[in-house]
Structure formats: structure tokens, C-alpha cells
Amino acid sequence: MTATAAGSPGPSPTTVPPTVETVLAFVNTRADGSGRRELFGDGDSFAAWLAERDEFAGETVVTDADAAVARELRDALVTVLLAHSGDEEGLGESLQRAERHLRRVGSLYPLATVVTAGGAELASPQTGVPGVFGTVLAAVTTLAQSGDWGRVKACRNPPCHFGFLDRTRNGGGLYCSTGCGSQVSMRRHRRRQRRGGGAPSEA
């Protein structure tokens, strides 16, 4: 999470920086209607997920209450990522609630600046589960400072809402895959057909 020097180019939209990987790994733990299962359902499942992620320092003692806090943080971040995609679920009151929650989380898990000869980075001074949440917040902050936060989005195809890095040149990507884009287009096409089929026919 090293800070980029002023005037230097940020990460290319065709690459996936470690900070993006950290955020996407955290937000893409939700169950959906296409077979993905909930990975933060309880303390055991949250601990199993953490044990597979090197950036979170491996195995950590986790409670069901910790898993609930993780779900709340994750869902607030997903709402913000939906806002990046312009989705209605990520706008208005839902976005305001998510941002208020993230401010509270930021005060509970403060970050520290680590300065070395090679640069400076944000890191969590805490250990255990608080360190996990701090690491996620540090990744988000670094992305925001580099100008890449807006390219981290959630798919607009409900109920997918899978987090992804928008690699398009103009930053206009809305879906995590062409499959999700096709599903949305097909649903719109069917709605238009139903509206057209319900109209009275002329003799």
C-alpha cells in the first residue's frame, strides 16, 4: 500500500494492484442467487476465509460477533461500489447510511503511517480481527489517494453485485462480466416485449 509520488502515473487500469485484490477479496464473500455462498456467516467460516488470505496474517481467533461486524463492513463497502456503478441501490439514503457506517468503522480501526526509505504506506497498528478491518480500510484509503477507488465497482446485475475492477478505457463498465451484461439486456428486452404484448391491438 505504498503511496505514489506526486506527478507519477498511477496503476494501469489493466492491472490489479494488491490493494484492489484486498478490497475485492473482502467484498466478494456474499451469497447470491447463482451459487456463491456466504463466507462470513459465522465465526468459523470467517476464520476459515482469513486463514486463506496472506495479507490478513493467516489464522486468527474469530467469534460470531466478529463475523457480524465483517458483514456490516462488507455490505457498506458494496453499497459504495454500487454507487461507483451508478446503481440505484448504491444511491440516496442507502449510500448515506453506508458512508455513516464507514466513518464509524474508521474511528474504531484507525490507521498508522509507516515511513521507510522506499516510501510511506498506511497499515493497521492493531492485530487480530481489528487488524483485518484496518487492512481493508488501508487498502480503500490507498486506492482513493491514487485515484483508482472509482474504478472499483459492484456489478449492476442483481442479485450478483460482484465486486470488480473496471478496466474500460473510459471507466464506464457496469457489469463484472459479459454474461451479467447479457442477462440485464435480456431482462430489459423481455419487459419491452411484455409491455408491447399488453397493448391493445388495432383492427
Rank of each mutant, 00 (worst) to 15 (best):
A3I: 04
T4V: 15
T4R: 15
G10M: 09
S12P: 04
T14P: 00
T19P: 11
V20K: 07
T22S: 06
V23C: 05
N28L: 07
N28A: 05
T29R: 02
R30L: 03
G33M: 10
R37Y: 03
G43I: 12
G43D: 04
D44A: 08
A51Q: 03
R53C: 07
D54N: 08
D54F: 10
F56A: 02
G58C: 11
V61N: 06
V62F: 08
A65K: 15
A83L: 13
Q96Y: 06
E99M: 15
E99S: 07
H101D: 12
L102M: 09
P110W: 09
A112K: 09
T116D: 11
T127M: 12
P130Y: 03
V132N: 01
G134I: 02
L137T: 03
L137W: 05
L143A: 07
L143N: 00
L143W: 02
C155E: 00
R156N: 01
C160R: 08
L165E: 01
L165R: 14
D166M: 01
D166P: 02
R167N: 14
G173I: 08
Y175R: 09
S177C: 07
C180S: 01
G181W: 12
S182K: 13
Q183R: 15
R191T: 14
R195D: 14
R195K: 12
A203H: 15
